[in-house]
């Protein structure tokens, strides 16, 4: 392990990550007025991004492999039902995660 090179790698990863997060603020973050199109985009992007993140989290699921992604399908179903029913984020995330852990460790383990 080369300490200097390791620090270099970490610094590059840190700077690139920060720059990516800063792009919208660098481009539109000055004191001037933000164009309406960007403002509207900012308000309608979150739902599209959240849907994409759900797919991103489940991207590794292989429906042809053993289990066919049933543990994921059932757990996502439980999460949706729980949240429609109680709309309590802690309950939903907690029980949904327990459900998935149970399924993946026992039924589909």
């Amino acid at each position: 392990m080369n300490t200097i090179h390791s620090i270099g790698i970490i610094a590059v990863a840190a700077i690139c990550t920060m720059l990516l997060r800063a792009v919208p603020f660098i481009v539109f973050g000055g004191s001037r007025r933000i164009p309406d199109v960007i403002r509207e985009l900012g308000s309608c992007l979150p739902p599209a991004i959240m849907a994409t993140l759900v797919v991103y989290c489940l991207r590794g699921v292989d429906i042809l492999a053993e289990g066919h992604g049933m543990a994921e399908l059932i757990s996502v179903g439980v999460v949706v039902m729980l949240h429609l029913w109680k709309r309590n984020i802690l309950l939903t995330v907690g029980l949904g995660t327990l459900c998935y852990m149970f399924l993946i460790q026992t039924v589909f383990g």
Binding site: M50, V54, C57, H83, V93, T97, Y100, M101, L103, I104
Partner: peptide, 20 residues
Amino acid sequence: DTTGIDFSMTALFVAIVVEQ
């Protein structure tokens, strides 16, 4: 055995999609 505990992030995103 913590296998599957990372599903909590998936659950969070799914719940937010439901809200939206």
